Simulated assay, not measured.
Amino acid sequence: MHPGCNIDQVYLCREPIDFRKAINGLSALVEQELGLSPFASALYVFTNRRHTQLKALYWHRNGFCLWQKRLEADQFAWPVDAKAPTASCSLHEFGWLLEGFDLSKNTPHKTLNFARVS
């Protein structure tokens, strides 16, 4: 992404998309089908049916930015189980997804809340 671009949230579109879509089609999909603002400080990420490619769309100051990644021999671990149209994650977790980690299987340690030591 563009250096200095402020991304507060990452939305992973659960349903695969037609990868012929470019900026206009993807921004319309974000607004009309996902019910989100394409101008928010968010990254909208889409995958193809085989989960071998990603497209990421975001707004930066005065225009949309779009980038794509294609895996040559593997698949992205894509969230598909829930009924919501998107899954959200942090920018840090999105980096893990790009590296091949399955975010749904890798959960952090449970938070423990104690009232006292003894």
Rank of each mutant, 00 (worst) to 15 (best):
T86H: 02
W67C: 12
K83V: 07
S104C: 10
K110V: 03
F114Y: 12
G63L: 14
D18H: 09
V80M: 11
G95T: 08
D18M: 05
L66E: 08
L103I: 04
A87R: 00
I7Y: 09
I23M: 12
V117G: 02
C5G: 05
L26G: 01
S41N: 12
A40D: 15
A56Y: 01
F64M: 09
A56E: 00
R14L: 06
F19W: 10
E15I: 00
F94V: 04
P3W: 09
E72I: 09
P79L: 07
S88F: 10
A56R: 00
A82R: 10
S90W: 06
E15G: 00
S90I: 04
K21S: 08
N24D: 11
C89G: 06
L91G: 10
D18K: 06
A22W: 09
F19H: 14
K110Y: 09
H60L: 07
Y44I: 01
F64Q: 03
L36A: 04
S88K: 05
Q32P: 02
C5D: 08
D74Y: 04
L34N: 03
T107N: 13
I17W: 01
C13W: 00
I23E: 05
F94I: 04
L43N: 01
P85Q: 06
E15D: 11
N106M: 12
S27C: 09
F64R: 02
D81H: 15
V80L: 11
W59F: 13
R70M: 12
E15F: 01
S104V: 12
P3M: 12
N6H: 13
V80K: 15
D8K: 15
N62D: 10
D74E: 11
L98M: 12
Q32A: 09
P79Q: 04
P108L: 03
K110T: 04
T47M: 01
Q9F: 09
I17T: 06
S118M: 08
E15H: 13
T86K: 01
Q68E: 14
Q68R: 15
L54W: 00
Q75I: 11
T47Q: 03
N6T: 09
Y11Q: 05
H51P: 02
